[in-house]
């Protein structure tokens, strides 16, 4: 008698001879739940207690609105700058040969490695009116420290490695034969760069831009020293969370945090969409 045919059953896990799935998977979920999900859920719970109208009330408070505008506006500009110079740095590092190249390449990661508070006080002392760079800028009429310009400088600092490191591996992989073909067919170098080399790199540039932007919006340590933190002028949203917390205004802090989380999720979503589009359009991320 034939056995009943085995139904293809959708299993949670493919069978494997390797042991330890239950242990490692369970431990991973437990850590994730306790360290990440539970505390984040506490924020969501708090924020939903406020309701949309409660969050809206906080967001439209003039001081909060101004801080959000400063954080998002300046971060946008800084991410743009970081993307342009990040692309240049990535291009120079992958396409040209020059002495000390490996050291220059290592230097790019400095903002990842340097604690933000250290970067913060260093930038503040450099760009202060009597600082090394601040003095020169003052001569041409630019006040950097204690203005949004200072925030911009700190955000460029913190965002640059994201811009470089997302584009760099793709420039390495460009097939030079395409450029040769373009040149053989009579295109000038500039024409080749703009019409042949650059288009496939756009998704990576956009991803780097989004990462630098998200990092800039959330950044705290490297900004507060150089920003001067004047309400309505150079106060950033993360600082306002800290201020609300020190006043025991948990609701206000949660509302701002929720808005910021919302924006960073939208940014993440945008990155995923860019990458999905890139996979369809160019066949890689």
């Amino acid at each position: 008698m034939a056995e009943p045919p085995l139904r293809p059953r959708r299993r949670f896990r493919q069978p494997s001879v390797i042991p330890g799935f239950g242990l490692t998977f369970g431990y991973t979920l437990t850590c994730l739940g306790v360290i990440v999900l539970l505390p984040l859920a506490a924020l969501v719970a708090r924020a939903s207690g406020l309701g949309l109208s409660g969050i809206w009330d906080v967001a439209t408070d003039p001081r909060v609105a101004s801080a959000l505008r400063v954080s998002f506006g300046v971060s946008l500009l800084a991410a743009l700058t970081a993307s342009v110079f990040g692309f240049l740095v990535a291009w120079v590092l992958t396409r040209y040969r020059f002495p000390g190249q490996k050291i220059v390449d290592a230097v790019v990661d400095l903002p990842f490695a340097l604690p933000t508070a250290v970067a913060g006080i260093a930038l503040a002392s450099l760009y202060a009116p009597n600082g090394l760079v601040g003095e020169q800028l003052a001569k041409i009429g630019i006040e950097a420290a204690y203005t949004p310009v200072g925030i911009y400088i700190a955000m460029v600092f913190i965002g640059l490695p994201f811009a470089v490191r997302t584009v760099q591996p793709l420039i390495v992989e460009i097939d030079k034969e395409i450029e040769e073909a373009s040149a053989t067919l009579g295109a000038g170098r500039w024409h080749t760069l703009v019409r042949v080399v650059l288009p496939p790199l756009i998704p990576a540039v956009l991803t780097g831009f989004a990462l630098a932007f998200a990092r800039g919006v959330g950044e705290y340590g490297s900004i507060i020293f150089i920003a001067g933190n004047l309400p309505y002028v150079s106060e950033i949203a993360p600082l306002l969370i800290v201020i609300k917390l020190s006043e025991f205004d948990y609701g206000g802090a949660c509302a701002i945090a929720t808005i910021m989380l919302g924006i960073s999720f939208v940014t993440l979503l945008a990155i995923n969409l860019i990458q999905a589009w890139s996979r369809r359009r160019f066949g890689y991320v």
Partner: peptide, 19 residues
């Protein structure tokens, strides 16, 4: 989900533990 902490502002990371 494991990646989530990378996209959360450091200040918000502290805030959630206070909550």
């Amino acid at each position: 989900l494991i990646d989530l902490p990378f996209s959360v502002s450091p200040v918000v990371s502290g805030l959630i533990y206070v909550l």
